[in-house]
């Protein structure tokens, strides 16, 4: 049981971005992917979720044995894949509470509804963990939210939807240190034997708070190096340049 990505190739109309990416995420583990800008990190997260801008040209992705690439965006999500967006979208007029409720309801069999009291009890408990004001339930999704509030809202959704695999796309970007700690606290509270994480980040800083089990370096659409948490520190100290020549050659 795992999220397995094998030799994945994906392109936008005029350019290949993922060029044979292989990665396996087991439940219970936190994997981090680091890499310079333009290495394809965000593309990977969108391709996993089925974004229509990207065409998969080769390779396979299975989630607990199920062929993910055959499923629609929403079916992947309901099967247990969650993406915390780097730039969460605003949805005017739809309250946060109604949005999360609709998402939870979409996971129930047709005709069933969620228990409102239990829902709000869970929602408030999660919001307290993230130090979110109760007024967020009745505000339109992400509308007028600060960058930090949007990211916290992504983690709130993660906590409410309890996915099997969660991909965090640059959750640390635009966060001050206090907000970063709060988001990390939420993520850490969700770590469990049944849940795998893929944390995409540009900076080591996030990994001080969400401690990864395994760290990968991504460059030019591939994983070029894999190591323990110490690899992240090394990257922080030395940058990416030292990896380039031999690793790229090896991965190609």
């Amino acid at each position: 049981m795992s999220l397995q990505i094998k030799d994945l190739h994906a392109k936008i109309p005029d350019r290949e971005i993922l060029k044979g990416l292989t990665l396996t995420i087991e439940p219970g583990k936190v994997h981090a992917i680091m890499g310079p800008n333009g290495s394809g990190k965000s593309t990977l997260s969108k391709v996993l979720c089925g974004h229509e801008d990207y065409e998969v040209t080769g390779g396979e992705v299975t989630m607990d044995g199920q062929n993910l690439l055959e499923l629609s965006v929403d079916a992947r999500a309901r099967a247990g894949l969650f993406l915390a967006f780097q730039y969460p979208h605003e949805i005017p007029g739809v309250t946060n509470a109604n949005f999360i409720r609709a998402a939870k309801k979409a996971r129930l069999p047709e005709g069933e509804d969620i228990d409102a009291i239990a829902f709000y009890r869970q929602l408030y408990a999660r919001m307290d963990q993230l130090e979110m004001d109760r007024s967020f339930t009745s505000r339109s999704v992400n509308e007028g939210f600060s960058g930090g509030e949007k990211k916290r809202n992504e983690i709130l959704q993660l906590m409410m939807l309890e996915p099997r695999y969660a991909v965090l796309d640059e959750t640390d970007s635009g966060l001050d240190i206090d907000a970063l700690k709060i988001c990390a606290r939420g993520v850490n509270a969700m770590r469990s034997e049944d849940r795998g994480f893929l944390v995409i980040t540009h900076y080591q800083r996030l990994l001080d708070y969400i401690k990864p089990d395994i760290v990968h370096v991504m460059m030019e659409g591939r994983i070029v190096m894999t190591g323990g948490p110490e690899l992240a520190l090394e990257l922080e100290a030395k940058g990416y340049d030292w990896i380039q020549p031999e690793a790229l050659a090896a991965a190609a």
Binding site: C49, H51, E52, S72, V73, D74, A77, R78, F82, L83, F85, P88, H89, E90, I91, P92, G93, V94, N98, F99, A102, A103, A106, R107, S140, Q157, L161
Partner: peptide, 29 residues
């Protein structure tokens, strides 16, 4: 936008549900 629908569908809503929710949001007031 397609991005808004993608965001909603990534949360598990079908395309029709995502559009309904967006439209209902638009006329909410």
């Amino acid at each position: 936008s397609a991005e808004q629908i993608f965001y909603l569908m990534q949360r598990g809503l079908s395309e029709a549900e995502a559009m309904s929710l967006s439209v209902n949001g638009f006329i909410n007031d």
